[in-house]
Design a protein around this nucleic acid. Structure first.
Length: 874
RNA sequence: GGGGGCUUAGCUCAGUUGGUUAGAGCACCUGCCUUACAAGCAGGGGGUCACAGGUUCGAGUCCUGUAGCCCCCACCA
């Protein structure tokens, strides 16, 4: 019934075995049970290109803690895993691999390229899944999904068609962010802003017909080629007469008008702005308002187009140099200012974004954003910690239309078809279409959708939507979403408005936000810095439990954390501590003991004391987990296990355990097994492997700790009197140890303890604890004279005398007692000042007042003892 | 420009709705190989909780301001 544990804690010897056992027994797969409320989470799908990094490790540790906790609480728990096709990242990776072979996308053609991409997915896509398993993640792998699988693709098409029909998806020419390296449009959310050093070039545009020039300024002089106007503010007195006149565009020679538009600000620069409608979002708006031509001057790889032969084929930066040089030569350059400004860059490759006029697909955001804001405002969805809702609101309330088309092949192809003959457009879920007007076979849009378009549907597309599957009906909406704050705008916000629009409900009720895992110096872990720590290496050195403990402990929602080997070592030491406590327990459990009942009547005070503290720990753990205070919950278990169970309880009961014939031996065994098993259960969500391995070795009922019941607060296991008694005994033992250590008395030198106390029952029954834990040769109660050459130890209302053979330094004793007296008086004064304050007594809660009363009582008694002691020394 | 966060022991950080003498890990000092654990045990030193005000019976915790560091968002030529 009980088993041996290896002498040494070696997580690698059992972690994989236990994971396989859980998996084979189907514990990760929930059963739908209409009599029970399910608990559902969807994993933030890692990119198939990805390798497990610390961010995943943290994210998945938190999710697994919640999943295992809820499962043990009896909820049919579905943690649904999967991966993201990550269109832009994956395509870039494959293109890069092809480049090494000297092959381009175009060489292969779409079909062959996609074959290659799928092959790549088959080969590497599962890698990260295997790595998640190493972490102990209790995902239901039978329900693993992929954003590009059939079901998800169906959901994507369904959504696209519905939104199009509703007028919420449209195709139009807008200024989009163009990445010249990835050669695709990207959304605003995918643009990073980076501070760059640049220049502000002031350029003179001569007025047509002479009479001077207007001066404009720009950070991108090459866009001059695309200028189709100069704008001034309609209220600008300086230029009133110029409106409607023309200037000559330098180098190009084109006549362009001076227009009036609010965009030009009176107090900014010269008040004149060059307008490049095809390469600047503001200018685009001006262009629309003033009906200006839109002149595209850059190709898709950011080279000047053939329309400008002198610069054609030059890269945008080469062209910038050449144009500035030519402006200088032509006398158009007025001034060059140094300037630091924010430049948009591609979040994938870091290339500077080129705003460009382009025909793309967009999602109209205004109408979708409103209910999404409301859901959070009304509390249907709650961010933990709450402060992130500000982030969310700000983004949701200011978001612009979402550019969803990408000039990529790896992804969901846009379900739109064009008729080359009559220009008809059809949007349909079908894989081909014929023109409703002329019957001709239509050509499908070449572009694919933004990766985030499919991730936005993840909580319901993975459960079968748009079909009303059993899973969808039972598990949706999900409960908790766990993710980093860096992904709220990309993903969380889009899931919320998507779900509200298509399913009519919020996709989850809680968003648990965590921070970034940084290195020991607080820097972001990144490939370029090379400061990343590989979770798999940590696992192989210290074990998955140690890694998980490190990530969970002291972690508070939304805050970044630093990761260092020292912290993992401390975690491993904790695991080792548990391991040894368990080994000790197993050595002392005997087969003839009944471990399945606990007879309270047979328990000694220390048993009841530990049960009572365990019970408190259970309550606090559950409360904290329910509040998502995972770090605090774990801290409580850690303290109980190490400080209470190991450092005190086990030491207290050693004499009873070693005396197999003793009357209270069985009760000690039972209590120890009960409390240790219970603590392992409390700890299981955090450290699943070690808790399972030990639980299996201990006497137990059931097949696995992971499907056992999470401990519940037990009203019958509250023993306040025993708590008070034991804390008095422990205080006294600590006081004795303290004094002995101060005097450098080695533990081997035992000394008798004489106790002078108004209430012997405060210590009776605990004499053996003083012998074992305070190096006492024996304990007796003092009636008359204090012993000669004894140091005194004041603890509560009692004084303990320790006869040491040396002459006691009376002066030193007096000084020490005076110091203690001072402290006691300070405490008494503090308590008195509160208790004498009528406002305090009347306004503070009774509990707080009682604490002060107890404090006063305790230190008054202590003071009396100290004074008596001082008296004796005189 | 807007928003948010951080500042607590030598270091890294907890501190849950304001309420016992502000905690932990690591590091440091002292003593222990006490037959579960030296990855350990016992004891110890070390903090005017960034600064200045305010609210409150009571502030590390709430409010205002100041300083330093960090992050997010934003189309300003």
């Amino acid at each position: 019934m009980k088993k041996e544990l290896a002498t040494k804690y070696d997580p690698s010897s059992f972690e994989d075995r236990l994971y396989a056992m859980w998996s084979e027994n189907g514990y990760f797969t929930p059963l739908r049970d209409d009599t029970k409320t399910p608990f559902t989470m969807v994993i933030p799908p890692p990119n198939i290109t990805g390798q497990l990094h610390m961010g995943h490790a943290l994210d998945n540790t938190l999710q697994d803690i919640l999943a295992r906790y809820k499962r043990m609480c009896g909820y049919p728990t579905l943690w649904l895993p999967g991966t993201d096709h990550a269109s832009i990242a994956t395509e870039a990776k494959i293109v890069e691999a092809m480049r090494k072979e000297g092959v381009t996308k175009e060489d292969l053609g779409r079909e062959k390229f996609l074959e290659r991409a799928w092959a790549w997915k088959e080969q590497y896509g599962g890698r990260i899944i295997e790595q998640l398993k190493k972490m102990g993640s209790s995902c239901d792998w039978t329900r693993t999904r992929f954003t590009l699988d059939e079901g998800c693709s169906d959901a994507v098409k369904e959504v696209f068609v519905r939104l199009y029909e509703k007028g919420l998806i449209y195709r139009g020419e807008r200024i989009i962010n163009w990445c010249p390296h990835c050669k695709t449009s990207i959304s605003n959310a995918e643009v990073d802003h980076e501070n760059q050093k640049g220049h502000f070039w002031h350029i003179r545009y001569p007025l047509v017909g002479g009479g001077g020039y207007v001066e404009v300024a720009t950070t991108r002089p090459e866009t001059l080629l695309g200028d189709t106007a100069v704008a001034v503010n309609p209220n600008d007195e300086r230029y009133k007469d110029m409106i409607g006149k023309y200037v000559v565009l330098p180098l190009v020679g084109r006549r362009i008008p001076i227009v009036a538009d609010e965009h030009a600000q009176l107090d900014k620069g010269t008040g004149c702005v060059k307008i490049t409608p095809a390469h600047d979002p503001n200018d685009f708006e001006v262009g629309k308002r003033c009906s200006l031509p839109m002149e595209v001057v850059l190709t898709e790889d950011a080279k000047i187009t053939d329309s400008y032969p002198k610069y054609a084929g030059m890269d945008r930066y080469e062209a910038r140099k050449a144009i500035v040089e030519d402006l200088r030569a032509g006398g158009y350059l007025a001034e060059i200012e140094d300037l630091e400004h924010e430049v948009g860059t591609c979040y994938r490759c870091g290339t500077t974004i080129e705003p460009m006029l382009s025909l793309q697909w967009f999602v109209k955001m205004e109408e979708l954003a409103k209910p999404a804001v409301k859901a959070v405002r009304d509390g249907d969805i709650r961010f933990v910690p709450e402060r992130f809702d500000k982030n969310y609101f700000h983004w949701m309330e200011n978001t612009q239309d979402w550019c969803i088309s990408r000039q990529l092949w790896w992804g969901h192809r846009i379900p739109a078809f064009y008729c080359d003959d009559c220009g008809e457009l059809v949007v349909t879920k079908e894989s081909e279409a014929y023109c409703p007007k002329c019957g001709k076979k239509m050509r499908q849009d070449e572009d694919t959708l933004d990766t985030w378009f499919s991730s936005a549907l993840w909580p319901f597309s993975t459960l079968g939507w748009p079909n009303e599957t059993e899973d969808y009906k039972y598990f949706f909406p999900t409960n908790t979403l766990v993710t980093g704050y860096d992904i709220i705008t990309f993903w969380v916000s889009r899931m919320i408005f998507s779900s509200l629009e298509y399913t009519g409900v919020s996709p989850f009720n809680t968003v648990l936000i965590h921070g970034l895992v940084r290195d020991a110096q607080g820097r972001k872990m990144s490939k370029s810095l090379g400061n990343g720590i590989d979770p798999l290496e940590i696992i192989s050195t210290y074990g998955a439990d140690a890694l998980r403990f490190t990530l969970a402990t002291g972690n508070s929602p939304g805050n970044d954390m630093r990761f260092s080997a020292e912290r993992v070592e401390a975690s491993r030491n904790f695991a080792n501590k548990i391991w040894n406590a368990a080994r000790f327990t197993l050595m002392n459990l005997t087969d003839d003991t009944d471990f399945y009942s606990l007879d309270v009547a047979s328990l000694r005070p220390e048993d009841k004391w530990v049960l009572s503290l365990f019970n408190k720990t259970v309550k606090e753990t559950r409360e904290n987990l329910d509040k998502f205070e995972i770090g605090i919950a774990l801290g409580g278990i850690y303290d109980f296990l190490w400080d209470i169970l190991c450092d005190w309880y086990i030491e207290l009961i050693k004499p009873r355990l070693f005396d197999k014939e003793g009357a209270t031996n069985k009760a000690a065994q039972q209590t120890l097994n009960y409390v240790l098993s219970g603590t392992l259960k409390l700890l299981h969500p955090f450290m699943p492997f070690i808790t399972e391995e030990i639980w299996q070795a201990l006497p137990h009922v059931g097949d696995s700790i992971m499907v056992s019941d999470y401990p519940e607060y037990n009203e019958d296991f509250n023993f306040p009197a025993d708590e008070k008694y034991m804390s008095g005994v422990i205080d006294a033992i600590k006081a004795v140890r303290n004094r002995r250590a101060e005097m450098n008395v080695p533990p081997s030198r035992k000394a008798h303890i004489f106790i002078k106390t108004p209430d012997r029952s405060a210590f009776e029954g605990s004499e053996i604890f003083f012998e074992k834990l305070a190096s006492a040769a024996g304990v007796s109660y003092l009636e008359g004279e204090e012993p000669e050459n004894a140091v005194s130890i004041v603890s509560g209302d009692s004084v303990l005398y320790l006869p040491v053979n040396e002459m006691v330094d009376t002066e030193a004793e007096r000084a020490r007692l005076n110091k203690e007296l001072e402290n006691a008086e300070k405490m008494i004064a503090s308590a008195n000042s509160k208790l004498n304050n009528a406002d305090f007594v009347s306004r503070a809660p009774e509990k707080v007042v009682n604490i002060e009363k107890d404090k006063l009582e305790k230190f008054t008694a202590l003071k009396a003892s100290i004074l008596a002691e001082l008296e004796r020394l005189n």
